[in-house]
Structures are given as structure tokens and as C-alpha cells.
């Protein structure tokens, strides 16, 4: 049978920065084809397709629908796969190969991680579960 895609409302203008991204305006309604854990969702808007940041989308059925996981305060061990320098105050600066504990895996691809006594946001894209090899 037909595949029913979930509809999401775009909550802020998004301009694309690479060819694979999909630009959309505040108020547009897109259909989500695939959700990547790193916060990029593959969407279609009219006759166009491309990746959009999950943070710019909210379910059309209402903001109550939550797919968000609960935080895990014990921490889930991960290793950083790339150097990253935070751009906002609440982000962590980490080098490649550092061990961190993931506290909260947020759908927007910015996970709450703990390094020693410091906690902040870090891109899920640059994290890999400890003990697993890169895909």
C-alpha cells in the first residue's frame, strides 16, 4: 500500500548551505521521508527533496507529540570523531578521540554530553558509541 509520510510545519526560514539541503520558509508544510539521528531529516516540499534540520520542524498534529528519549543521567559512553569548537556558550569544545558521556539524545542532533564536571551540547554527528567502529 501507499507509504503515509508524517507532515511537519517549518517554524523558521531555512536557507540551504549545501546542495543536498532543502530550503523552506516559516509556515511551509513538509513531509518527512527519513529521520537521521544526527538531526538532519530528509523532507519533501512540493516537487523538491532534501535534508532539513529537525530543529526547524514541528509535528503538524501539535507540539505535544514527542518522540524525544528520556535523559540518561548515568551517561552513555561515546567517543568524539572530530574536533569541534562550540559557537554558542552552552556548547562543548572537544578534540577528536575524547571520551564523553551522553546524557540526553535530542532529536535535533545536539546531544547533551558530560566531560568530567562540564556538561554542554555537542553535535551527534561527531559522536560514536564507545566500542563500535565507524560505519
Amino acid at each position: 500500500g501507499p507509504i503515509i509520510l508524517q507532515s511537519y510545519r517549518v517554524i523558521a526560514d531555512f536557507e540551504k548551505n549545501s546542495k543536498s539541503e532543502l530550503a523552506a520558509k516559516n509556515g511551509d508544510v513538509v513531509e518527512v521521508v527519513e529521520k537521521s539521528e544526527n538531526g538532519w531529516w530528509f523532507c519533501q516540499l512540493r516537487n523538491k527533496r532534501g535534508w532539513m534540520p529537525a530543529a526547524y520542524l514541528e509535528p503538524l498534529d501539535g507540539p505535544d507529540e514527542s518522540e524525544e528519549q528520556d535523559p540518561n543521567y548515568e551517561g552513555d559512553l561515546h567517543i568524539t570523531t572530530k574536533d569541534y569548537t562550540g559557537e554558542l556558550d552552552d556548547e562543548l569544545n572537544l578534540k577528536e578521540g575524547e571520551n564523553v558521556e551522553v546524557i540526553h539524545k535530542l532529536l535535533d542532533g545536539w546531544w547533551v554530553v558530560r566531560k568530567g564536571s562540564i556538561t554542554g551540547y555537542f553535535p551527534a554527528m561527531y559522536l560514536q558509541k564507545s566500542g563500535e567502529t565507524a560505519p
Binding site: 523558521a12 548551505n17 543536498s20 544526527n38 538531526g39 538532519w40 535534508w51 534540520p53 542532533g109 551527534a124
Partner: peptide, 22 residues
């Protein structure tokens, strides 16, 4: 076929959304 996602992390939530979450 699904294309590969962009190589950079997605942008943080728009400023107006971050304020709402606080």
C-alpha cells in the same frame, strides 16, 4: 534513493525557539 546527509551538523534551533524552551 536517499542522498547522503550533509557533512556538517545541522544548525541549532532558531533563537526564537530556544527562548520558548527555557
Amino acid at each position: 534513493t536517499i542522498k547522503r546527509p550533509p557533512e556538517n551538523p545541522p544548525p541549532r534551533p532558531p533563537a526564537e525557539v530556544r527562548r520558548k524552551q527555557v
